[in-house]
Lab assay of single mutants.
Amino acid sequence: DAEELIELVERALKEGREIILLGVRITSEEAGKWFIEWIRRFL
């Protein structure tokens, strides 16, 4: 579910982890915020 995915992304970014989803590397909080917004819009 989308909320679970958002929580995972937020937690990983807070822990300083690198996330790779759909071939996109997300390493900064700014990118994470963009990704979370995208999830909310399309899922």
Rank of each mutant, 00 (worst) to 15 (best):
D1H: 14
D1A: 13
D1T: 14
A2Q: 08
A2R: 08
A2W: 15
E3A: 12
E3N: 12
E3S: 11
E4A: 13
E4P: 09
E4W: 15
I6Q: 03
I6H: 04
I6W: 14
I6D: 03
I6P: 02
E7P: 03
E7D: 10
E7T: 12
E7K: 14
E7A: 14
L8G: 02
L8I: 09
L8A: 07
L8P: 00
L8V: 04
V9M: 06
V9H: 01
V9T: 02
V9P: 01
V9F: 06
V9D: 01
E10C: 15
E10I: 15
E10Y: 12
E10W: 15
E10R: 14
E10S: 09
R11Y: 03
R11V: 05
A12E: 03
A12T: 04
A12M: 08
A12Q: 03
A12I: 10
A12Y: 05
L13G: 01
L13Y: 04
L13E: 02
L13D: 02
L13W: 06
L13N: 01
K14F: 05
K14W: 07
E15S: 11
E15T: 07
E15N: 08
E15K: 07
E15A: 10
E15G: 04
G16M: 14
G16Q: 06
G16K: 08
G16R: 06
G16I: 15
G16L: 15
R17A: 09
R17G: 05
R17W: 11
R17Q: 04
E18R: 11
E18Y: 11
E18L: 12
I19H: 02
I19A: 03
I19V: 06
I19Y: 04
I20L: 05
I20R: 03
I20M: 04
I20G: 00
L21P: 00
L21M: 05
L22M: 07
L22F: 09
L22G: 02
L22Y: 04
L22W: 14
L22S: 03
L22E: 00
G23I: 12
G23T: 09
G23W: 14
G23C: 11
G23N: 04
G23D: 05
V24G: 04
V24E: 01
V24L: 06
V24K: 02
V24M: 06
R25S: 07
R25A: 10
R25N: 06
R25F: 11
R25P: 03
R25I: 10
R25E: 04
R25G: 05
I26M: 05
I26R: 05
I26E: 05
I26C: 15
I26S: 02
I26Y: 05
T27A: 13
T27I: 13
S28N: 11
S28L: 10
S28D: 09
S28G: 12
S28V: 08
S28I: 07
E29R: 10
E30A: 14
E30V: 13
E30L: 13
E30F: 11
E30Q: 11
E30M: 12
A31T: 12
A31R: 09
A31W: 14
A31V: 15
A31N: 07
A31S: 09
G32F: 15
G32H: 06
G32I: 15
G32Q: 06
G32E: 04
G32L: 15
G32W: 14
G32C: 15
K33D: 06
K33T: 08
K33H: 07
K33L: 09
K33E: 06
K33S: 05
K33F: 07
W34P: 00
W34R: 14
W34K: 12
W34E: 06
F35M: 06
F35E: 00
F35Y: 04
F35D: 00
F35I: 12
F35L: 10
I36Q: 03
I36P: 00
I36L: 08
I36A: 05
I36S: 02
I36V: 05
E37Y: 13
E37Q: 10
E37H: 07
E37W: 12
W38Y: 05
W38K: 01
I39Y: 06
I39D: 00
I39F: 07
I39W: 04
R40K: 10
R40H: 05
R40S: 04
R40L: 12
R40P: 00
R40D: 01
R40G: 02
R41M: 13
R41K: 11
R41V: 10
R41F: 13
F42L: 11
F42Q: 04
F42A: 04
F42D: 00
F42W: 14
L43F: 14
L43D: 00
L43H: 03
L43M: 12
L43R: 02
L43V: 07
L43I: 09
